[in-house]
Design a protein around this nucleic acid. Structure first.
Lengths: 379, 379
DNA sequence: CAAAAAACTGTGTGCGCACACAGTTTTTTA
DNA sequence: TAAAAAACTGTGTGCGCACACAGTTTTTTG
């Protein structure tokens, strides 16, 4: 098989014609003077092979550079990998459309390798529904769990049960590693806070203040919000001469525009030096909706995620920056990670931090419905 | 096969158990009362099938929702797709490391589907070498050409020859569509100019000037540089009250730091209101190297691409913004596009514009050696 | 209207691998 | 030392498809 060096250039310039033919199990068997069955046993570690032959076979495999033919292997294997997807229902929070789309794309990409999935969607505001759906999922005995463990307590329970059933999991969005977690896929929250600090800072003068606003309800797993806050504060800590004051608030009733408007109006009058707002999740559009147009335009507003409402306000210059956490990718990579694990049998990275994209009016169009932006195989 | 609706939620909640079994050619044949050979002939349009049976088969296929099993198909097909890669040698311009790495990753991803490639690297400053390598490539009769058509005249010649030989091409970096071009993959140059305008504007005050600097040698296909300039100018045109003056220069001897330093020193003295520099390609590091440290820190500098030298200066706050044209992706998608065409036999988009990522100190780490960031299959 | 040509159709083999099962050799046991 | 058990090894089949080739029916030709 035509091999390239990893980073050394120039590439060797073998002709196509010179490309060696693929090494099959049969070739190994012949070279080692055994049957294909024995080679197969060695490859799959099924035992029942004498030490002598095993070593001989392994040597030949190395010498000839054997690589399993995934295509043939998949065809012969003839089995199905079933993934249970446990995510919030996008109907209860539009943010989750993107991860689901990513998952769908991923499944489509690897469906012919026998990877299937079933979604179990829960109300993002209901711990009970989460547990319900989780139990449902486990009862169907999937091969793996793709989960956003939003509720700390309930998630830990579910993950324990899954571990007992020997069902590995991949986490997206929120990190909550346990023993059978193959990988966490999501943003590095601390770093995204740092980045938000820098972006907000572009529009602030010395002595002005920045508002850090958490729009979330009590029970949600708020760990990553705290990390964002830490990063945000650290940004300004490392720039002591920036003299920016940070004011932090949590606000629960974000879906009630009137209440939010009242809250913000009060706050901005009390603290007239607030010139920028950092909303720590995807709900910045609620803030803009609750602000008078001119106020929104004058403030620097930094938020997260390319959901439709946010993008609209970005176009109107009411939101200045959006940090894209690549939620589509989270879903896509979640599926691909399981593919890597089950089909390609690759070692999986325990943490897969996704890029943080800075989105302004001029480049948002490339990041929507961002299909076809995530590799595959890598044997 | 388990099918999901494209965007409508909630997903249907079929159990794993309810998932229908895959439809094989054999199933179609039985249902239509013909042999598998006849079905095969219809699927591949090989003719020699009576109209009556053909229609019956097509109907059954539609009814049962037949989808070709790519895995089995690939195995049986047992052929090789050979891609000739015609790019500048990274030894002559480090920018090209990334596309090549992307190509390499792509090849690795689909090698088991029989996709192979041979690189033909040319000196980026030599039209003759380009033509040489191109001829070499064509002489090897590849199945497709993956090409960066940097030299206008020579490229057109090569592409004509390729067309005569019935070799389709995919272009990256530079757009030069001809009849047998499957797709252009690269940035939307105009849009990247617009974006550069906005980024530079963050640091400029009214009445100040911006320098637009082309660091390239004469014969290179400069079309996309002009488009960038157009976008850049248009950004400030749409903000008439920004009152930013744009000064444009071309400079050829960029690799000679002394000459460049002299040129810049002169210019900045003559035009003291220059507060920002926009370098229209990946060579912004040359500018920083040629500037005194304090000058570099005071100026707003916007450039392109995450090559090592640029990133270093980004970390030192000497370059303020880099626009990432996703050159890695260009290579990766180039391979994937050919895979889609030859193996999956999909319709290919004529233009695949890549996202423009805004890179600052705080998020550059996610964009280096950006493997695994591009989907696959999508049947 | 028979023979030749053309149009059509079915069967069989191989792609590389996974796994079941039968067959063989070696070791253990009584 | 023979029989039973354990350890080891080879062969054969099927995964779903592509394609060659042989076989059959229909149409054309002289």
């Amino acid at each position: 098989m035509h091999k390239l060096c990893i980073t050394i250039f120039p590439y060797s310039l073998e002709n196509f014609e010179a490309v060696k033919k693929t090494i099959r199990i049969k070739d190994i068997a012949e070279e080692a003077g055994v049957s294909t069955g024995t080679v197969d046993r060695v490859i799959h570690g099924r035992g029942n092979v004498s030490q002598k032959k095993k070593e001989r076979i392994l040597n030949v495999m190395k010498k000839l550079g054997y690589e399993r033919n995934i295509v043939a292997s998949t065809l012969a294997y003839n089995k199905t990998i079933r993934i249970a997807v446990l995510l919030p229902d996008p109907a209860t929070d539009p943010y989750w459309n993107e991860p689901l789309n990513g998952i769908q794309d991923g499944i489509q990409a690897v469906q012919h390798f026998g990877v299937k999935m079933t979604p179990y969607l829960f109300d993002i505001f209901s711990e009970a529904d989460f547990s319900n759906q989780a139990n449902q999922a486990l009862m169907d005995h999937p091969d793996a769990l793709l989960i956003a463990p939003l509720f700390l307590k309930e998630s830990k329970l579910v993950l324990e049960k899954a571990e007992q059933l020997n069902i590995p999991n991949v986490m997206i969005n929120t990190n909550l590693h346990n023993e059978s977690t193959l990988s966490y896929i999501g943003p590095d929250s601390y770093q995204s806070g740092l980045l938000a600090g820098r972006l907000l800072h572009f529009g602030l003068q010395k002595g002005e203040a920045a508002l850090l606003l958490n729009l979330s309800k009590g029970s949600t797993n708020a760990h990553h919000l705290l990390e964002k806050e830490e990063g945000f504060r650290d940004y300004f800590r490392t720039k002591p001469n920036s003299q920016i004051k940070i004011i932090k608030y949590d606000f629960e009733h974000f879906s009630n525009t009137q209440k939010l408007a009242l809250f913000l109006d009060n706050l901005l009058h009390l603290q007239p030096d607030i010139r920028g707002i950092f909303i720590t999740n995807s709900r910045s559009y609620h803030v803009v909706e609750a602000l008078p147009t001119t106020t929104a335009e004058q403030l620097i507003i930094v938020g997260f995620d390319l959901i439709e409402q946010n993008i609209q306000f970005l176009g109107q210059n009411k939101i200045n920056f959006l940090i894209n956490q690549n939620s589509f990718q989270q879903g896509y990579l979640g599926v691909m990670t399981l593919f890597d694990h089950f089909i390609l049998r690759k070692k999986i990275l325990l943490n897969q931090f996704l890029p943080l994209d800075i989105i302004v009016k001029e480049n948002h169009m490339y990041h929507q419905h961002n299909t076809r932006n995530t590799p595959f195989l890598h044997t």
